[in-house]
Amino acid sequence: MSNVFFTSDHHFGHKLIIDFESRPFTDVEQMNESMIESWNAVVGKADKVFHLGDFSFLGKEATQTIVSRLNGYKTLILGNHDRGRSRSWWLDAGFDEVSEHPLIYKDFFFLSHEPMYMNKHMPYVNVHGHIHGQKYEGKNYFNICVEHWNYTPLTFEQIRDSVVVSEEG
């Protein structure tokens, strides 16, 4: 049986993100290799991964090389740094699916790059990226940025169980 994973904001090839977000890497090559290892340590070939944007700052060939090394069937929801490139560019780079808009998963989870407006009366959860080390308060938001999760994708069950626990707590 395959698993479903979520992650965002790898910023492959983005040297300045190491300082911007105090990432624990000495250089961009170490960052890229470490994030590929972390991904493949949990994601199997038959698994599905939703990447919620800001995947790579590299050219198409270097991006293709990274995508091809990552396990799983990969769906990209375009982030603010991805939108300068066309949907077909990202498909050519190796993603299996690419969405320019948020997606709804299991009729309850809104998957988006930027956090969406959610009022406290809405029963839904917005799984998002974009804000890196920051965190929105409340049970309606789940920040999947790599900085919060040791640069490793999380399973749907990990997110679901975390949301259920926070609602009970």
Rank of each mutant, 00 (worst) to 15 (best):
L58A: 12
G59V: 11
G59L: 09
G59F: 06
G59C: 10
G59R: 15
K60Q: 14
K60N: 08
K60I: 15
K60Y: 02
K60A: 10
K60F: 04
E61D: 15
E61N: 14
A62R: 15
A62W: 07
A62E: 15
T63P: 04
Q64Y: 00
Q64S: 15
Q64G: 13
Q64I: 02
Q64F: 01
Q64N: 11
Q64H: 08
T65Y: 11
I66S: 03
I66C: 05
V67N: 05
V67H: 01
V67M: 06
S68F: 08
S68C: 06
S68Q: 13
S68T: 09
R69T: 02
L70G: 08
L70K: 05
L70M: 14
L70I: 01
L70E: 12
N71T: 02
N71W: 07
G72K: 03
G72A: 09
Y73W: 14
Y73R: 13
Y73K: 14
Y73T: 14
K74C: 01
K74F: 00
K74T: 01
T75N: 03
L76A: 01
I77D: 00
I77L: 15
I77N: 05
I77G: 05
I77K: 05
L78N: 02
L78Q: 12
G79T: 00
G79W: 01
G79K: 00
G79C: 04
N80L: 05
N80H: 09
H81M: 12
H81F: 11
H81E: 12
H81D: 11
D82R: 01
D82F: 04
D82Q: 00
D82G: 03
R83E: 14
R83N: 10
R83H: 11
R83T: 10
G84F: 13
G84K: 10
G84P: 00
G84H: 12
G84D: 14
R85L: 15
R85H: 13
S86N: 06
S86Y: 04
S86D: 02
R87E: 12
S88L: 14
S88D: 14
W89F: 15
W89S: 10
W89P: 08
W90T: 04
W90N: 06
W90P: 02
W90E: 00
L91N: 00
L91G: 01
L91K: 06
L91A: 01
L91I: 07
L91H: 00
L91V: 08
D92K: 07
D92F: 04
D92T: 04
D92E: 12
D92W: 02
A93L: 10
A93V: 09
A93W: 06
A93M: 07
G94L: 06
G94M: 07
G94K: 03
G94F: 03
G94W: 05
F95A: 01
F95E: 02
F95M: 05
F95Q: 03
F95R: 07
F95P: 07
D96F: 06
D96V: 03
D96N: 15
E97R: 14
E97W: 10
E97I: 04
E97S: 09
E97G: 03
